[in-house]
Design a protein around this nucleic acid. Sequence first.
RNA 1: GCGGGUGUAGCUCAGUGGUAGAGCGUCACGUUGCCAACGUGAAUGUCGUGGGUUCGAGCCCCAUCACCCGCUCCA
Length: 540
Amino acid sequence: MQGIFAMDMSKMDKLVSLCKRRGFIFQSSEIYGGLNGFWDYGPLGVELKRNIKDAWWRDMVTGHDDLSTLPGAPAPYEMVGLDCAIVMHPQVWKCSGHYDLFHDYKVECKESKKRYRYDQVWGRWVEAKGQRVFVAVANPGEEGVKEAEQKALKFFNLRAKNVDELKWDGDVLCLNAIKDFTQVLGPEAKALGTLGEPREFNLMMKTIIGALGGEEDAAFLRPETAQGIFCNYKNVIDSSRVKIPFGIAQIGKSFRNEITPRNFTFRSREFEQMEIEFFCEPKSSPDWYKFWRDRRYQWYLNLGLAKERLRLRDHHQDELSHYSCGTADIEYAFPFLAAGDFGELEGIAHRGDFDLRSHSEGKLKKDGTNLVVELGPEGKPKYKGSGKDLSYFDEATRERFISHVIEPSAGADRATLAFLCEAYHEEEVNGEQRVVLKLHPRIAPFKAAIFPLVKKDGMPEIAQKIYRDLKPHFNVFYDEGGAVGRRYRRQDEAGTPYCVTVDGQTLQDQTVTIRDRDTLKQDRVPIAELAAIIHARIRS
RNA sequence: GCGGGUGUAGCUCAGUGGUAGAGCGUCACGUUGCCAACGUGAAUGUCGUGGGUUCGAGCCCCAUCACCCGCUCCA
């Protein structure tokens, strides 16, 4: 035993090592010491990721049959694509809700090491034993009041029966009404004054527009591609003759200032999304939601993720966003997670009419079961919408409605990572260990490698001709260096599904062997049929 | 952001104050006739980065960056 097999490393460490060694994934700016949360794809990685994106685009968009009713679908539907700018009008993020959600002031507690949203800490002044303190809790409701009482008793070292000694002063206040924190008892602190100054957390990446731009020219790099689709909803309808139900797909980069980038590429600050916004009539939207949820789950299974490690999880009611009537995550049991834990690959959300209405009327918020325009202090919309009519008139039913939206939103980098994790295998072959990436042929960087068995007797010439003939059809790789066994193993690590070898018999009868990466089985086939055979095998 | 750990060749690592190392990998030539063979030769190091202590630092000290683990966060 030698090499990486003997190493006492976790599977994930070995995969990260292989990714670098073979050129799948590098850390960004590595020669300068790296940059937290950013990653580069090497020569093999770029092919893998591109193949995954291409498979998605082909399966969801260009390969979609607009005329037939797919199994599980309520009706036929159309699919079109879009490619939007990364920087959009700042108002987009206000109406989408990202600005409020991503733009928090937080306070940190030195004692408990907890971090709270500045506007979500509440408390009350209380006096006892000649001391006046502000008892803070992270809960504004009835429970918070009780909690504050318990905390106050504990702080003043009083028994429950002496609760009358606590002299409460005024109503429950938000922490942002308090100027001086020295008399504040943090929600999980035992001492006073442990809360630090409120600090701004910009979860969206800020940028500046214009060479002379100042703070007032601030814009944001998009935290999701979806908003570009909503903003072009009317453009697409007016220009492409699509009719509801239809979907708009987009693949592109998004940016989020993750607080803790972790776990290789899983949580990155720059990442690529593959998103669909599917527009449908409100009545049928629950059925479309189920269709997309099941279809997207099946997509990962079809490309090779194992059922044991892939899970479709419906969100609980209290986990749903304020506008969502249903959300499911497709999750994968990544090896860097604890046993039984899963990480999100894709979320499928039923977003109702929140997005189109917000971009039309102004940012909405939930009021009971209804969505209403959120108002600012002066009774005007807190964030003004575009004012454009984004409703849809159905010619067939003569009905006007605002489309409901189903959003399957997938992470291209997370999918790439999941496929790599799934593919990584260490195996024994004739007493020797090998590392093999059992990638689905559709996403493998190279579809086949072409070898002369030895570098003489005209074998390289024949192999090179095969290489040139196959190259227009597939990404193939030529290698004539060293022992053929080594070349096979190299391709195993790259995930190449087939190796074609020119040998002595080729010189006699124009046949070659084709070796299967996973079974190691070799079949002898005529050179003339190679392209067709590889094609057929990749599809199966 | 906090606590702990790590950082030396492409990869995995050894090197406890005195000449920069190993295995694997890579490249060339020869040999080899189907699964990481063999021989010969070769290339490859800001010892993460910056400061300090010392006659002398990969090693000690400080700072910083990155990665890993645990908290925290996760639209």
